[in-house]
Design a protein around this nucleic acid. Structure first.
Lengths: 217, 217
DNA sequence: AACATTAACGACCGGTCGGTCTTTTTGTTG
DNA sequence: CAACAAAAAGACCGACCGGTCGTTAATGTT
């Protein structure tokens, strides 16, 4: 019985594998049906496991939903936030954040397009622990955009008059709208508009627009 | 038995009154819970009528949901679209449409903020008659914004280079984002940003910005 | 007064929901 | 091998879901 026994125990490893598989499926399902529309029976069926098996890992539906939010957040951080942070600080990093977000949607990572967009509108008027967690995560995202914009101002790449709060609001708005309009109408056109809108906005506020990419037709 | 017998028949009048009361409550409930979260039992309870009484007016839940979409659409037309169309054609009418939309949210007409925003994200990835009807209504709204923008270009109030499609996308995006962010965070600040964003955008594209109102602090 | 029509109700149906409990299977350890 | 522990299954529960049916009450027609 060593300190790493837990990681070597095949039983626990199996449980962890199952847990990840369940959360993967839960995020995918919830991106379409919402966290409330996510039913334990259907979730279990879609994985070929039994419903009661889920209760071996989470004591209630709500705790599974909370874990699902956490899992979705981790996914976004790894696929969007971290890659964007590898770009040079300033206006290019801010643009990369929006660009990679749209790319995440283009790549059809989730069948519903965006887990957080779905649950934000699902829970925005329904108090409770789920909503609280979504509020936190969304606040983090907006503050991240805001911080990147502020850094771009400090670096002199955005005009001193530019408001980071205002800019963060607008960039997020265009990302959210891209999700729902692309689902309702023609996808490619909408994604193009969401990119152009932010590019135009950044170009108008930039001290040297040439650091931004061309508008790809 | 005159031609206007139907309108004089107290039985039919009573039914019509009930029908309107049900649809009013349905739109309000669905703006919070979504069209799927709308349960017939709770809807009936909130009105003090019996669940089976609802089936006297609609043959199925889906047909009630469709009627609810229609009812919500009528509400928006009367409270936002028609008042905005009374403003002079061009950039002022386009601004009025956005301004009145935000005012609709500020006035807390619906407990969930916006019926269509909720159901757009609820149904955007779920095929069926409900989604089809929402797609139609949303398309109408976007084309309306687009038409107003095009009229402003024709009137020479917006620069010839301005793209009505792009502008319509951006204005709608800022309206939608105002809804969900105001529900998750501080309301007044978000509404102010949604107004300023569109005002700035229109001002940048206007040939004569003085026809637009000042940015009210 | 007799009858037709409409709105609305209460009882009930099969099915699904989240959740509990007991049992079986799978893997670890002495 | 036996003893044990974790993962997973299966049977089952009360509550609620959308929906049906037979009935009653109110209104209008003759």
């Amino acid at each position: 019985m060593t300190a790493s026994a837990a990681s070597l125990d095949g039983r626990i490893a199996r449980g962890e594998r199952t847990r990840q598989a369940v959360l993967d499926a839960a995020v995918r399902l919830a991106s379409v049906e919402g966290l409330d529309g996510l039913s334990l029976g259907r979730l279990a069926d879609s994985l070929g496991v039994s419903k009661s098996g889920l209760f071996a890992h989470w004591p209630s539906k709500e705790s599974l939903q909370l874990a699902t939010i956490e899992h979705a957040r981790t996914d976004i951080v790894e696929r969007v936030v971290r890659p964007a942070l590898r770009h040079p600080r300033g206006i290019r990093r801010l643009w990369a954040m929006h660009d990679l977000r749209i790319a995440y949607y283009v790549d059809d990572v989730l069948p519903g397009g965006c887990f957080f967009c779905t649950v934000e509108f699902e829970l925005d008027s329904r108090p409770g622990p789920l909503r609280d967690r979504v509020v936190d995560a969304t606040g983090e995202w907006l503050q991240l955009l805001q911080r990147l914009a502020a850094e771009a101002v400090v670096a002199g790449e955005l005009r001193p008059g530019a408001s980071p709060e205002q800019l963060a609001f607008e960039i997020d708005a265009l990302g959210v709208a891209a999700v729902y309009q692309s689902r309702l109408f023609d996808q490619a056109e909408v994604y193009r508009r969401a990119r152009i809108a932010v590019l135009d906005r950044l170009r108008a506020l930039a001290t040297d627009p040439s650091v931004l990419p061309e508008e790809h037709a």
